[in-house]
Amino acid sequence: MPLKTYLLALLFTPFALATTTTTTTDPPPPNPIGPRAPASSGLLSELPTIFHGATELLSPETVDKLETIVSGGAVLLGGDTLQNLQRLLSGANIDKLQRIIDNADRLLTPGFVNETTQLIDMANPLVSDVGKIMNALIGST
């Protein structure tokens, strides 16, 4: 083999080794066991509580009570009751109720309520004494 062939082989050997070592780097094999899931603080952690509440809600007693409510509601909404509710909730009645609420709001200030409570508290012994006098008068005749 001529010297030129050896020199060329020696010259290209580092490149051949470099390319084989750099191109043969494969990614690491996948980990067959995944990382542990983080602790749940959402819906999954609340499922036992939800199921417990649902079992209490669907107990025979609760179902009976719900059945009573539904039956009673059907009776209320049947017949003349619906027309009575419509008359009760008419525009004129709503206006009257609004005026009553407005007047009560102006009248029932904290000061008025406190003064009225004090007046009733002071009158209570007087009413009790008058009751005793009336009983004594009625009993003596």
Rank of each mutant, 00 (worst) to 15 (best):
Q86P: 05
P110H: 01
L11D: 02
T23A: 14
R36P: 14
L7K: 02
A123E: 08
T23I: 08
T23S: 13
P32T: 07
T19Q: 06
S90P: 05
I33M: 01
P32Y: 03
P30L: 02
K65L: 09
T141P: 13
N84M: 08
F15V: 06
L88M: 11
P125H: 12
R99V: 13
P35Q: 13
T62P: 00
L119T: 07
F51W: 13
D105H: 08
S90C: 02
T5Y: 13
S59G: 05
G42H: 09
T81N: 14
V130I: 10
G53Y: 08
P27K: 04
A9E: 01
R36D: 15
P48W: 01
R99W: 01
P27I: 14
R99Q: 03
V130K: 03
V70Q: 05
S140D: 10
S40R: 06
Q118V: 10
K4Y: 11
T20L: 14
D26N: 15
T49P: 13
G139F: 15
A18N: 05
G42N: 11
I101L: 06
Q118W: 04
L85H: 05
V70G: 03
L77T: 13
P29G: 06
P110G: 01
I69L: 09
R106T: 11
L47K: 02
E115K: 14
L82S: 11
N124C: 06
